[in-house]
Design a binder for these strands. Structure first.
Lengths: 214, 214
DNA sequence: TGTAAAAACTACTAGCAGGTAGATATTTTT
DNA sequence: AAAAATATCTACCTGCTAGTAGTTTTTACA
């Protein structure tokens, strides 16, 4: 799994002028975001202190402040990574030709599902804790989310237009497919011994069934 | 909508020995739980202060402490109301004869879905904030949840045995139906102008399709 | 190896939030 | 109407947590 780093705008400018393009900075920022995502995921953003995050990394609180403006900026970084990785994968799949709309839908669910499981902490924190973002960060992240929803919607509409998906399905189905995907962490964790692959394949079937394209 | 009150065990014993059977006590406890559920729903449990809850009711913090042991007990009350109302409705439906397993599944989704929408704040808080419960309260609430899941599972198994649901559906489908239902608040709120009835009927169709009983 | 710049730390503050002790107001009972 | 019991409030304490100022350590480079 590659390293996940947020956009430059979220980190505090280094005295040296280095940005996330510097391996050094990117590495540390990634470690902070990674540790914070795990803690926020387990205990919730508001009941997690920066001392918790720092001691998880065997550093001190001011260390965090030398990379991030404040606590909320760390949350924003997590949210950004969560949604933009999902969005990246979605656009990646949609950019490729596919045999059919059916195959395309299956691939979207499969690939995005994979990200949602691999980056579970990020995605769940993003879903649960977005309300604690500052107004600016909130708007920025929401825009990414809307783009995600919109593209899923388009994909469904095209499938209906092509005749591969049932004509009478509600356009609202896009929200449902998105819901199925977002809900994966819950399903995955409550599925006992099942592997990620099994859960995802099951989900692909469910999505096709919902679209009436089985 | 009837008044929702938690079990007696959660409230602080009154000096007079009165319990929730007293209209007087039940009324005040209900007002506290109601206000708290709305605030916890909007801002999250951990970032909500007891002063917030108190001022919402135009009372003071010690007023809350005269009815509840501590902040966590209020959360426990919300969770208890949330899950036990859903469980109550489920058992109610299952206790009745139905023409078919198909009709029974539809009715479960319809009735439980209704509760989930009507008691949205309770259900969502229960889902999101359970991790902040004390060990004892957590276990107690979890037992109710398991009972819920188990009964849905049984219903599906019976439907498969009767031949009404597809034989090849995964037993895990029970978790999915539960998931569909729990996810309603998200779907409902992102469905724009749709009425609760429309969303629920749509969901009934989706559940039947997932069970292969359309 | 010496020096300057960058990185990380120690030690602190201010304000807030859960929880309580004791005083006051209200109701009930006799 | 007085007294007893109950309900609610005022005023406080304590511990915690986001955030910071200024010092020390480490690194980079000459």
């Amino acid at each position: 799994m590659t390293v996940a780093v947020p956009g430059d705008s979220l980190i505090r400018p280094r005295p040296s002028g280095a940005s996330l393009k510097s391996e050094f900075v990117a590495f540390k920022v990634n470690r902070i975001v990674e540790a914070a995502s795990r803690l926020f995921y387990e205990r919730g953003y508001s009941s997690c202190t920066l001392d918790n995050v720092a001691s998880q990394l065997s550093v001190t609180k001011p260390f965090l402040y030398s990379y991030f403006r404040n606590k909320e900026a760390i949350l924003a970084a997590i949210c950004e990574v969560g949604i933009s990785e999902a969005l990246g994968v979605l656009e990646d799949v949609l950019a490729h030709e596919h045999d059919s709309h059916r195959a395309r839908l299956a691939e979207v669910v499969r690939k995005v599902g994979r990200i949602v499981i691999d980056r579970q902490e990020y995605v769940v924190v993003y879903q649960r804790e977005m309300k604690h973002l500052s107004a600016d960060d909130y708007k920025r992240i929401l825009r990414l989310r809307h783009s995600f929803d919109h593209q899923i919607g388009e994909m469904i509409r095209e499938g209906v237009a092509s005749g591969e998906f049932r004509e009478d399905i509600d356009p609202f189905i896009a929200v449902w497919i998105g819901g199925l995907i977002s809900w994966i962490p819950t399903w995955y964790s409550s599925s006992g011994q099942r592997s990620a692959e099994e859960v995802i394949e099951y989900l692909v079937q469910a999505a096709l069934r919902l679209a009436g394209a089985e």
